[in-house]
Amino acid sequence: MTSTSPDAAKVWRAAKKPLIILAILLAGVLVLIIVRGDQGAREELHPDSYAPDGGRALAQVLRQQGVRVDQVDAFTEAEAAQNATVLITRPDLLPPERLLRLRDQAKHLVLVGAQGPGVAAVLPGTEVAGVSEVENRQPECPLSAAVAAAEATSGGVRYQPGDGVLSCYPDDGAGTLVQRFGGPDTTVTLLGTPAPLTNERLDEAGNAALGLRLLGTGDRLVWYVPSPTDAALRGDEKSVAELVPDGLKFGLVQLFIAAVVLALWRARRLGRVVHEKLPVVVRAAETVEGRARLYRRSGATAHVAGTLRQATRARLAPRLGLAPDAEPPALIGALAARTGRPGAHLHALLHGPPPDSDPALVRLADELDRLEKEVDDR
């Protein structure tokens, strides 16, 4: 009698699809972790980024000149910088009041590409006048950093300067680099584009000199890369839980307690779980023998033979690389190639007429077993 317990091949076929799906999910999670883990280093003008629009080259040059470069992502870390130069790569992410706090703490505040309400906050009277093309220009101003750099890459956001604000690299009357002293010891600089500070263009024209003189005048540079997820930048925003009235919260808590009490009450009415022993344990072999006796008593020789042949075909097809419901010609051809038996003999064995007696049924079962063993052996 052939065992019907699942073998390794059946287990693999059953588990193959879930394992493939699990592997795809794990691969996706791994890729996401790698991408998100390297996300900061790929941001524009990030001091650790090797990309063309990154700022690693400038950061390295500043360090070689003895400037301490600290890259920070949190507003609280940038605010803690006292009497240092603070470079903000994405200033529009900060509310105006946060920019004012940084201006009051820093010795020199440099904003790159700012065009939001923070412009008028840090430089009263200065307005955004549009956007211009990024190209090399002459400074046309007395600002020492621009004069030393001479021609440099400029453009991007254009600023209409207010009173006491120096305007450099003009375009249509508005400068793309403006600077003024924001207080007794604070200087504020607006740079319309990050282009002159990037890896790609740092060695063009006077960009390196401009970057060194804007950011390297002090002993320390705090390179602030704001993050949209920074809780300190949300201002007065409140979470959904904070917006829910206290009365509604109290009511929801009461409903939850009532639901728990109701569940416990209904569960108690069901009573405890009662374990009952089975009246009799029937062995699997006895079940098989009982069914065999029923088949024999009813004279169902043809039915039994058909069942044996169908089970044999279903087991042989996967072993030969075929589908369980493969067509008879394909199965017979594969069996003939594997065993060397004639196709007519195999067809008669697997699809022939039913046996006419019990001894013939037993011989058929033996032949089917021998055929399966022969296939496995080869």
Rank of each mutant, 00 (worst) to 15 (best):
D203K: 09
E204L: 12
A205K: 13
A205I: 02
A205F: 15
G206F: 05
G206H: 01
G206L: 02
N207G: 04
A208P: 03
A208N: 07
A208S: 03
A208H: 05
A209D: 10
A209W: 08
A209Y: 07
L210N: 04
G211E: 06
G211P: 12
G211M: 03
L215E: 04
L215C: 02
L215N: 03
L215F: 06
G216S: 05
T217H: 13
T217W: 10
G218R: 09
G218V: 00
G218P: 03
R220S: 06
R220A: 08
L221D: 04
L221Q: 00
L221P: 08
L221F: 07
L221T: 05
V222R: 06
V222Y: 02
V222D: 02
W223V: 09
W223E: 05
W223F: 13
W223Y: 01
W223M: 04
Y224C: 09
Y224F: 15
Y224G: 07
S227L: 12
S227R: 10
P228Q: 03
P228V: 07
P228I: 05
P228E: 06
T229A: 14
T229F: 14
T229I: 12
T229C: 07
T229M: 13
D230E: 03
D230T: 10
D230V: 11
D230C: 11
A231S: 15
A231F: 03
A231D: 10
A231T: 15
A232N: 11
A232P: 00
L233W: 01
R234P: 01
R234G: 11
R234L: 15
G235D: 03
G235P: 01
D236Q: 12
E237T: 10
E237Y: 09
K238M: 14
K238I: 10
S239R: 13
V240R: 13
V240G: 00
V240N: 10
V240I: 13
A241L: 15
A241Y: 13
A241W: 14
